[in-house]
Nucleic acid binder design. Structure first.
Lengths: 281, 281
DNA sequence: GCATGCCTTCCATTCAGCGAAAGTAACTCG
DNA sequence: CGAGTTACTTTCGCTGAATGGAAGGCATGC
């Protein structure tokens, strides 16, 4: 870096991003020292960069001195096409699906080797489950994951199978051969089914959102094992997935279907005299 | 910066963040040159920093060469307490409110001088409105905004009144005196009401989420003007707001109520051989 | 074929960024 | 009560990472 010593070749940008990387779902609030340790940066560097991030409100410092991800980071993240496009288009379909089934409804995409949950609808009556918006679960053990995987290239599936596969329950399918067959079935059937492979007592049915790009997302429903009949559950899910796919194709060039009247498109005010939080102590 | 010439005193970190700032709801997809222009960075610098951000997947480059906010930025943003705590706690209450009213239900916080929408529930039947998750609207013209403002300090309200106030409709209240009185009424009444002040034909009722910290959020409902009776709408909204406040107070020290079983808390895999998107061209 | 716009790479210059170290502050423990 | 611990903040002199101009490549369009 510009400067003194230590790990050469590391850019300032990578250090700044390492600070974001220090946070995850199990570490939502960190002290300065913890950020320093988890990011591998010296305390002095961490201090300076964290201060800069905090001024931008990518981080926020709570009353007890701990840092967490800030409002501005949240705001910027929501500009992702995942939110503004995919989720926006999918939401009405997911809503209908939820209202028809009153069960957990999921929208997921593939990210690396994980299924990443973009949206989750759940009511009081739904089975409580581990997924959460912004969360990741293994592809081979979830409905949406298998739906995504089944339409991936052979090479990609092989890459997945070559890795050690998590086994959250004793029903989880981790044998390459069985999983391969499972994926073939899924593709022929048009939808994926899991039976207690992620969580004991719950099953899921999921269908891919198929566009010219392939399976860009998957829609799934999670229910109690006892009340499941995949064949009955599947048609409305497939319909929702196909509806989303059609809307995606139809609006391919429209970056932001829906917000023609974009009030609030004004540039974000930077700090300058705007009290972030009035001190009430 | 470490380096050549130009605007001295600007840090690398601020330049990196300026790249994020180049995006907003009206500019979801930008070319490299556009990012360069909008951020005020030289093309070479932009190129380098954008490349670094893209490698981290804070940005993504689409098939047509345009950049947008990436999956990793979205993922990190969702670690904000706004999402993991406030929204998580509030969601069941908002759901009930939605199911009871079948109208647009909002959860908002104050950010600077704006009301910022943290969550929005809407069905087909609801009035179509301008708000969106992650969006901002002026405080003086919205239900949730007035609910937040009414419990702010006198000094803060004065600061708001001292600024030029947007006037989206002819019903918008911008006269300081009237707005002050409106806020006093709101505080006495316990909830805020707007009548076509943001959008013609719609009204809203909103209540603050009051904790020891003050009005940390607000819950609101937006309906067609014709079918509105604020006094009837208010009780369930206040109940929801109070429920949320109580849960917030009760879980004050629990950073993440709900995810005891945090599957997926594994550290995020960095790039290294994980195909972000298999090229299917 | 020339102009235009966009992206990428190269490179000499130089100042922003670095970490050690010292300072401050809040607790704990004997 | 003082010594020790842990966490955070600030200072400072050295230096190599970051910078932007320039030049090259590659599309469009006229």
């Amino acid at each position: 870096m510009a400067g003194n010593t230590s790990e050469s070749g590391r850019t300032v940008a990578s250090r700044l991003l390492a600070i974001f990387d220090a946070f995850d779902i199990g570490h939502l609030r960190l002290s300065l020292s913890e950020i320093s340790r988890r990011s591998g940066l010296s305390l002095a560097t961490t201090h300076r960069l964290v201060a800069e991030l905090t001024a931008w409100r990518g981080l926020q410092r709570d009353a007890d001195g701990l840092y967490s991800i800030g409002l501005r980071a949240w705001e910027v993240g929501l500009l992702s096409p995942l939110h503004t496009r995919l989720r926006e288009i999918a939401l009405p379909y997911l809503q209908s699906l939820y209202e028809a089934s009153r069960e957990n409804v999921h929208l997921a995409v593939r990210d690396g080797f994980d299924a990443m949950y973009v949206e989750k609808l759940a009511g009081h009556r739904s089975v409580p489950i581990v997924s959460r918006t912004g969360g990741r679960l293994p592809m081979h053990a979830t409905g949406v994951g298998k739906a995504l995987l089944a339409w991936e290239s052979r090479a990609f599936v092989d890459a997945v199978l070559a890795r050690p596969l998590d086994r959250p329950t004793s029903y989880t399918i981790t044998e390459p051969g069985r999983l391969q067959r499972e994926l073939t079935d899924t593709r022929e059937r048009g939808y994926a089914v899991t039976r207690e492979e992620m969580t004991l007592g719950t099953c899921s049915v999921a269908a891919p959102v198929l566009t010219a790009e392939g399976a860009v997302a998957a829609v799934g429903v999670v229910v109690h094992s006892v009340r499941v009949d995949p064949a009955k559950l599947a048609p409305p899910i497939r319909l929702a997935a196909e509806g989303i796919a059609a809307r995606l194709e139809a609006t391919r060039d429209d970056p932001h279907p829906g917000y023609e009247h974009d009030f609030g498109a004004a540039p974000v005010r930077r700090a300058a005299g705007v009290p972030d939080r009035v001190d009430r102590r």
